[in-house]
């Protein structure tokens, strides 16, 4: 029943929009100075789409952030997944790495910014590192859990058939852990978007995080809404792309099938 579910979702969004319009109208309880009304957000959208804001129009801001997110995601996903697989595969290695990982994990990405500037300056590498601190964690945890949860019988059967160690890893362990790895990648991608604003605080010229930062400096709530909505839409689109890749690669696994199938 995807049609009915779509209608319900549309009704929910429409209801929210109507509530917002009423609440910020002259008859509503909320002042548009504190919570921008739909016309104020519309005007801000028009401004960034046509004349631009924070140095560029919306497409350039989106493309800049998208580039940074893809770069940060690839670095965090590849390094995090590799580390997680190694930790899941070798318990001694996990015991060696885990204390450092547990120490680094709770530190908020914002806290790294002064050090990152010292180490890497203000270029893209510094921004990617800020993203990496937040985004590699779910990739590590899920890849490690994925390996640990592989049924022992499966590994035993492969070993009994004389499968060499490297083939066991590539042809048994990684595919068996893949559903959990993809769960980690989805969380990693979300973390990448949620850290974007912090990353773009490191001396950016363009980007949606830069737009939010400039709008905050201008106390421009309408533009803050536009920036947030743009990040929401971009995050949703990239998650959808990752979901599509997952379904293509893991068609054999139940978790990769669409929920309504």
């Amino acid at each position: 029943m995807p049609g009915r579910r779509g209608l319900i979702a549309a009704a929910s969004l429409l209801g929210l929009a109507l509530l917002w319009a009423w609440a910020t109208s002259p008859f509503g309880p909320v002042s548009p100075e504190r919570f921008p009304s739909p016309p104020l957000v519309g005007a801000a959208f028009l401004q960034i789409a046509t004349t631009g804001f924070a140095g560029a129009t919306l497409p350039r801001q989106v493309l800049t952030s998208l580039g940074l997110v893809i770069e940060g995601f690839l670095v965090a996903a590849s390094s995090g997944t590799a580390l997680g697989l190694a930790m899941g595969w070798n318990r001694r290695f996990a015991a060696f790495v885990n204390p450092v990982f547990q120490l680094l994990r709770p530190i908020p990405p914002l806290a790294w910014i002064p050090l990152v500037i010292l180490w890497l300056g203000l270029g893209n590498a510094a921004k990617v590192l800020v993203i990496w601190f937040a985004a590699f964690v779910p990739a590590v945890i899920n890849a490690e859990t994925g390996v640990r949860e592989i049924p022992g019988a499966l590994l035993e059967a492969a070993r009994m058939l004389g499968t060499p160690r490297h083939r066991l890893l590539v042809e048994v362990v990684v595919p068996a852990a893949a559903p959990m790895i993809f769960t980690g990648l989805r969380l990693c991608l979300q973390a990448t978007w949620t850290t974007l604003v912090a990353a773009e605080l490191v001396g950016s010229f363009y980007g949606l995080g830069h737009v939010l930062s400039e709008a905050q400096q201008d106390i421009y709530p309408g533009m803050i809404f536009v920036g947030m909505a743009a990040i929401g839409v971009c995050g949703w689109l990239t998650t959808a792309v990752l979901g599509w890749v997952e379904r293509r690669l893991l068609g054999w696994h139940a978790s990769a099938r669409p929920a309504h199938a």
């Binding site: 910014i113 002064p114 500037i117 010292l118 300056g121 203000l122 605080l201 490191v202 001396g203 950016s204």
Partner: peptide, 20 residues
């Protein structure tokens, strides 16, 4: 010129570290 927005403390850090 290129004007880059940063907080005051990170600007000092950038100058001290030779990054600006």
């Amino acid at each position: 010129v290129s004007l880059v927005n940063l907080g005051q403390a990170p600007i000092v850090t950038s100058i001290i570290s030779g990054n600006a």
